[in-house]
């Protein structure tokens, strides 16, 4: 009688387990999520001071301010997301299970996307209060624009975070690598969100959303292809 051979779990199941693990970790250490939320709130508040609390300017710039707040928060979330794996060499443990690098990528990216996406919804009432914005097109388009933008931040973010996590000066390195890469997706997301807030008389929203979706495809495909090479040793 040979001992039962443990079958490695399939790709989707591995992804689901890893995602559940990440979310559970976030839930158990709620202090981190709380800190993230307050960081984002502080950012929005600071933007208001920077713009001299001028209602017209803030209204016009609200889309850009929202995405800057989300971007800064996402840098913190992404950095944290791999820092926890450093303790007890947890990432090596996961890889030895064995879980495929691609499953780790998808799980990490999805987990961070969910986090930033939730943050985007949390910030909405704050923006209404602080910047006096209106959700002119309703919550549906906002949900889509937010989700597509979050997806475009997290895929390259996870790749770079895994890299920066093992380098010196990782806190500087992650934004230095990530921000220039994200410019196109952010431009399109800002345009889309501004249209959601300010109305869309020229019917342009759809094309900007398609554009972000195109970037999502590129970023996620590249991350999916390249991430296993990043964590191989």
């Amino acid at each position: 009688m040979s001992p039962p051979v443990r079958q490695p779990v399939g790709f989707f199941r591995a992804t689901a387990i890893l995602l559940r693990k990440d979310l559970l970790l976030e839930w158990r250490t709620r202090a981190r999520v709380n800190a993230l939320v307050f960081f984002a709130l502080a950012t929005l508040l600071l933007f208001a001071f920077a713009l001299d609390a001028n209602r017209n300017i803030m209204q016009a710039a609200a889309g850009g301010l929202l995405w800057l707040g989300l971007l800064f928060s996402s840098v913190l979330a992404l950095g944290e997301s791999f820092r926890v794996e450093n303790e007890n060499a947890a990432l090596d443990g996961i890889r030895l299970v064995p879980a495929s690098g691609r499953a780790i990528f998808i799980a990490k990216a999805l987990g961070n996307t969910l986090l930033i996406y939730a943050l985007g919804w949390l910030l909405l009432p704050v923006m209404v209060a602080l910047y006096d914005i209106h959700l002119t097109l309703g919550p549906g388009p906002y949900a889509i624009a937010l989700l597509l933008g979050c997806l475009s931040i997290t895929a390259p973010g996870v790749v770079f975070s895994a890299i920066a996590n093992n380098a010196r000066a990782r806190d500087v390195l992650l934004p230095l690598l990530l921000f220039p890469l994200l410019v196109p997706a952010l431009l399109a997301s800002v345009k889309a969100t501004t249209l959601v807030f300010g109305g869309d008389p020229m019917d342009q929203l759809r094309s900007w959303l398609w554009l972000v979706a195109g970037f999502d495809v590129i970023y996620w495909a590249l991350g999916f292809l390249l991430f296993p090479r990043v964590i191989e040793d």
Binding site: L173, V230, D233
Partner: peptide, 27 residues
């Protein structure tokens, strides 16, 4: 500039080469 900074911040030559290649392709 970020790519060059990355190369400076990683000491292990194997990892530096691998990771900077990934970053080079993405950029």
């Amino acid at each position: 500039a970020g790519y060059l900074a990355l190369r400076r911040f990683i000491e292990d030559p194997d990892r530096r080469a691998l990771w900077s290649s990934v970053v080079g392709i993405l950029v």
